[in-house]
């Protein structure tokens, strides 16, 4: 089996005239946890959102180059299909406030109008919530609104929602930046579990988090991918001066 799941080739992205991602080449393997870090405005989130084409939702946003998902260029694929195949978890937990926990998990099916039998839905809900380490906490209140959960639980619910669609790849956009430390560690612990089944790309501002959870780390600066290497290597002896300045907090 081909081990590369996502490969960007000369990927460029713009907001209007603002060139925010410049010629990024990166190749990500299956079942890897990739941390993407860099200072604010370095293009890391734009790159992440480019992978499932959320980038182009912003008016004036354009992209060029290739992002190959299983050797197919997502930029040529049907957006709906791309996004169904690539899960995404956002900065702030965003369960649908009008749906129950149960409905939130299967929201991908409900909202797309995909018919799923009740029995199948039950299975999906239990499996996804178990994978996101939330099942034991919510199994007795599946029909309560998702917004009654704590921040960390809500974020794990959002992860369950992404898992329910059986994606190959899950993108995380600063998934713990709105969470308290306890919730953060519960989500971080989850990354280790998820790694066995999925490939995770995590954009984070928190360098220690990148160090803790990832196998490899990519460092973006001014729209360029400056360095992409084994996380251990990156945090003991980075190859580029800019990476070193960033991770040691000596950035301008």
């Amino acid at each position: 089996m081909e081990n590369t799941i996502v490969k960007a080739e000369n990927y460029n992205a713009w907001f209007g005239d603002n060139h925010v991602v410049k010629d990024v080449n990166i190749s990500i393997n299956r079942n890897e946890v990739i941390a993407v870090m860099g200072p604010s405005g370095c293009g890391k989130t734009t790159f992440l959102r480019g992978i499932n084409r959320m980038h182009e939702l912003i008016p004036g946003a354009t992209a060029k180059g290739k992002i190959l998902l299983d050797s197919q260029n997502v930029l040529d694929m049907n957006v709906i299909y791309v996004r169904a195949k690539i899960g995404m978890v956002f900065q702030r937990p965003n369960p649908f406030p009008n749906l129950s926990i149960y409905e939130n998990v299967v929201a991908g099916y409900l909202l797309n109008g995909i018919k799923v039998s009740k029995a199948d839905k039950d299975v999906i809900v239990e499996k996804s919530l178990t994978s996101s380490a939330l099942w034991n906490e919510v199994k007795d209140s599946l029909h309560k609104k998702g917004t009654f959960l704590s921040g960390g639980q809500q974020q794990r619910l959002c992860i369950a929602r992404a898992i329910a669609m059986e994606p190959e790849l899950i993108l995380f956009d600063e998934p713990t930046s709105a969470l308290d430390p306890i919730s953060t560690s519960s989500v971080e612990a989850l990354f280790h579990e998820l790694k066995t089944k999925y490939t995770l790309i995590i954009v984070t501002h928190n360098m220690q988090q990148a160090a803790r959870v990832s196998d490899r780390t990519a460092f973006f600066y001014m729209g360029e991918l400056v360095e992409f290497d084994d996380t251990k290597q990156m945090f003991t002896a980075p190859a580029d001066q800019r990476t070193q300045n960033y991770i040691t907090g000596r950035f301008s």
């Binding site: 080449n25 400056v226 003991t236 002896a237 190859a239 580029d240 001066q241 800019r242 070193q244």
Partner: peptide, 18 residues
């Protein structure tokens, strides 16, 4: 030696700032 970094490992595009 951690400071004297091996420059621009693969792509050759990266420039050193200092």
């Amino acid at each position: 030696e951690a400071k004297i970094l091996k420059h621009a490992k693969s792509s050759g595009k990266l420039t050193e700032e200092d």
